[in-house]
Simulated assay, not measured.
Amino acid sequence: MSPKALFAVILFLAGTMPLFSQTGVGTKPIKGAKLVLDGTEKMLHKNWEYWEGPRFSSTMPIKWPAATDPIDGGPVISSNDPAGAGGKYGAADIVTKEKYRDFRAHVEFFVKDPGGNSGVYLQNRYEIQILDGDNTNHGMAAIINEQIPTSDAYNGTGKWNAYDIVFKAARFENGVLTEKARTTIYFNGVKIHEDQPIQQVWGGPNSGIDGGNDGGKGITDTPGGLKLQAEGHDVFYRNIWIKKLDLDGKSTDF
């Protein structure tokens, strides 16, 4: 094969295999992805809503405050909704208006202060933890209460961090669960979870969809949005994008 023909094949494959792309802070949306948060209030209110679970205690419009990026001066959104003060998760969490089954997502976050706490929920069920200073299975980058990351890739407070996630929803046949949800996650460009099954929803009914269903084990076939948690801390978000996928018969690994 000539060099020209080989280059054409590489370009074709790059266009048909969008999962194989850059990861880490600053990664731009891949082909077919939707940017859902650029750090501006306009995009926040356009693409997000409160999750009105049993503990919901805020009111529309969303009260997550606009802030200025301490690094480059650009716009960011803080998770420090007043209703979430004291770690009251579920009181003011926000979720994308669009709901998903399989997807790839990119989320950039900045923990301002030591002990900063938030979280990224896949399908408004499964939490990928954001918690400064904790390296347990309830800590930073853990699939909460189930799996610690295989590497410590956290950049620390006062710096930007990025999760790159491929998620495959649980599978059902005739309403019966046949396959657990699975995920592969890169943290600041380092693979920390590889096609890891997720057992259940943790945290009870205030945590998300199915949290109160059979102690979080009663997963249903209901699509859910990407959710960000408010726990009374200044955790900033920007550059969040999502691409819907179809992973029937496929691994989440990328």
Rank of each mutant, 00 (worst) to 15 (best):
I62P: 03
P70H: 05
K99R: 14
A105P: 08
F109L: 09
F56P: 05
D72A: 14
T96R: 05
Y100N: 11
G53Y: 01
W64F: 14
E98A: 13
K97C: 08
V120C: 13
A83L: 05
S57Y: 00
P75T: 08
R55D: 07
S79I: 10
S118R: 02
G119N: 13
G119V: 13
Q123F: 01
I94Y: 03
N117E: 04
P70S: 08
F103R: 05
E108A: 01
Y89R: 01
F56W: 15
Y121L: 14
A105L: 11
F103Y: 15
S79Q: 06
K63I: 05
E108Q: 04
P70V: 08
D69T: 10
P54I: 11
S118V: 03
T68H: 02
P54M: 01
E98T: 15
G87E: 10
E108T: 04
D81M: 08
V95T: 14
R55N: 05
S79M: 08
G90L: 01
H106L: 07
T59A: 15
A66H: 14
F56M: 08
A83F: 04
N80S: 12
G116Q: 03
D113E: 15
Q123S: 14
T96H: 07
D81H: 13
N117D: 13
G73R: 08
Q123L: 11
A85P: 00
R104S: 13
G73S: 07
F103K: 05
G73E: 03
L122K: 02
T68Q: 11
E108N: 00
I62T: 07
I71N: 00
A66V: 13
S78V: 14
S78Q: 13
K88D: 09
N80V: 01
P54N: 02
G74M: 09
D93E: 10
G119R: 10
P82I: 02
S57D: 12
D72S: 15
R55P: 00
V107G: 04
A66M: 11
G73V: 10
F109W: 15
K112P: 00
G116V: 06
F103H: 08
V120F: 10
G119M: 11
V76M: 15
V107Y: 01
K63M: 11
Q123N: 14
V95K: 04
A66G: 14
H106I: 12
S57V: 02
R104I: 13
E98C: 04
P82G: 03
M60D: 15
I77G: 03
Y100Q: 06
K99V: 15
D93F: 09
A91C: 14
G90D: 00
R101M: 12
F103W: 09
A92K: 06
T68R: 10
G115N: 05
R55C: 00
G115P: 10
A105Q: 09
V111W: 02
P82D: 01
